[in-house]
Design a protein around this nucleic acid. Structure first.
Lengths: 207, 207
DNA sequence: TTATCTTTGTTTTATTAATAACAACATAAA
DNA sequence: TTTATGTTGTTATTAATAAAACAAAGATAA
């Protein structure tokens, strides 16, 4: 499977989340327009995404929920799983730990890091907090390939450098300043302030 | 000014953030390629965005930092300011309160809401926590036009309904299930799980 | 049996966003 | 004075994304 479009990957993740809920409710089949309604998009978009991953529904019943979930899993997940570290155990870091706890079988938060001595050694949502000085060691020991940066903005750049050095493969940066990483590392930046300012801008002119 | 492209609005918010840092450092002028480097985009993109808001730099010195910040403010901000409420004072909610504290003159978090009796009446990052039962009253009293949803996923839909009823103009939803709001309200959804799964997908095949 | 309805899968078109190309201009250097 | 350099502002092109259009197929009902 050649790499899928960015936006399709995002939507597949979202489809799966809600398909799992449908499955838990005992729903066996689902139509493209039902999926579309949940996500505020068009049914065509849904069918196109599903086409791209090579799944085929049945004409009268739509898509088999379990099968579709399984196939999205094959596409998105790495069979042997991926381990995640959260750098920064402040409010945001802890929110993330709770969020991701037992969320996905193939994606586990296995360590957190912080500089605050009071936090080191504590366990939150099953995740132990280590000192940042041990970053490289533990990333290697625990075979961590993905990191989430949730430290204050002034520390983000240094953390990113350490992560690169430690051999991380993907970074999700929540700090509001972009970080620099080499080409071979996948970097996703998300900035809450920008999201809020965007809402403010578009809400400004609403009657 | 007709409405700007989505992505341009996002970038303007980011430009401003970093221009303010430049200004604080005493930097008076900045070139498009300097801005571009910070944000990992092309100088053309920067110039195009700046063109769209009608600002003009000088040929040899680039853009005047203070002037550009002021103009972005005129574009993004509402002159009389906008008030924000955060619904859900858990880890994520508190992270947001801290994040936005004194961040923008024209965008102030003026109330938080939660159902937990222990949290009600407490003040975090200068923001008081009110019971959700008072949502409508306080949104009206404090002239709040923007809300951030950071409650557990099962409560998000009901909160969204209340917010709509309370006359909110824009919503930023951090819960992982999309909410339904009428057309006349601006809705931005952001889902951390999707971001992480996206990083995992694209990092998966890195060597 | 035939017609109708509904839904999928896929191609075509439209929209949005990013990039490239380049003229205009000011400064500095020759 | 003339040429070279580097930057902006803007138009043109390309790429990415979403939407529309529609054929195919199977179920249902007439």
């Amino acid at each position: 499977m050649s790499t899928l479009p960015d936006k399709t990957v995002e939507r597949l993740s979202q489809y799966r989340r809600n398909l799992l809920i449908c499955d838990a409710k005992g729903k066996e089949h689902i139509f493209s327009h039902e999926i579309a309604n949940i996500h505020h998009i068009t049914p065509v978009q849904v069918r196109r995404d599903i086409m791209l991953i090579g799944y085929t529904g049945t004409l009268r019943k739509g898509y088999n929920v379990k099968e579709l979930v399984a196939l999205i899993g094959e596409i998105l997940d790495k069979p042997e799983g991926q381990n995640v570290a959260i750098i920064g155990a402040g409010n945001l870091g802890r929110a993330l730990m709770k969020y991701f706890k037992n969320r996905r079988e193939k994606l586990s938060v296995v360590a957190a890091f912080d500089n605050n001595p009071e936090k080191i050694g504590t366990i939150y949502a099953n995740v132990e907090v280590f000192p940042i000085s041990q970053l490289k060691q533990i990333i290697s020991d625990k075979k961590i390939s993905i990191a989430i940066i949730s430290v204050p903005v002034d520390n983000a750049a240094a953390i990113a450098d350490s992560l690169v050095e430690a051999g991380i493969k993907g970074i999700l940066n929540f700090s509001p300043r972009p970080v620099n990483v080499p080409e071979h590392i996948y970097l996703e930046e998300y900035d809450m302030i920008t999201s809020l300012e965007k809402v403010a801008y578009f809400a400004k002119n609403k009657n």
